[in-house]
């Protein structure tokens, strides 16, 4: 039977993993976009429909995707992390 402390430590590691994975995703997303800006000018200049270049679309998507990532984290923390920590901490109070 794992102790409360070791289960809390497991939860901490899970939060760490989640935070780092999502940070990594944000970094990849943004610096991927910057790399395209720096080296992929012809690709970004492609117009998907008149006026809507891939560059503008991807720029907007970076913003929207960043927000989606925060939503994923908030949902995970509210439905997984918080209830489990509370369940472990409550009996001890």
């Amino acid at each position: 039977m794992p102790t409360v402390d070791s289960r809390l430590a497991d939860l901490d590691r899970a939060r760490w993993r989640m935070a780092l994975t999502l940070t990594g995703a944000t970094v990849l997303l943004y610096f991927g976009f910057i790399a395209l800006v720096a080296f992929g000018r012809p690709i970004l200049a492609v117009q998907l429909m008149p006026g809507l270049s891939l560059g503008i679309l991807l720029g907007a998507l970076v913003i929207v995707a960043s927000w989606m990532l925060t939503w994923i984290y908030v949902r995970w923390a509210n439905t997984v992390y918080d209830p489990q920590v509370q369940a472990l901490m409550e009996p001890g109070r």
């Binding site: 989640m18 935070a19 780092l20 999502l22 940070t23 944000t26 997303l29 943004y30 976009f33 720029g59 970076v62 913003i63 960043s66 990532l69 925060t70 984290y73 908030v74």
Partner: peptide, 14 residues
């Protein structure tokens, strides 16, 4: 526009 926003997820996660 994109650069000024992408710090916010980092604020949240870490």
């Amino acid at each position: 526009s994109t650069g000024w926003l992408v710090g916010w997820p980092v604020v949240l996660f870490l």
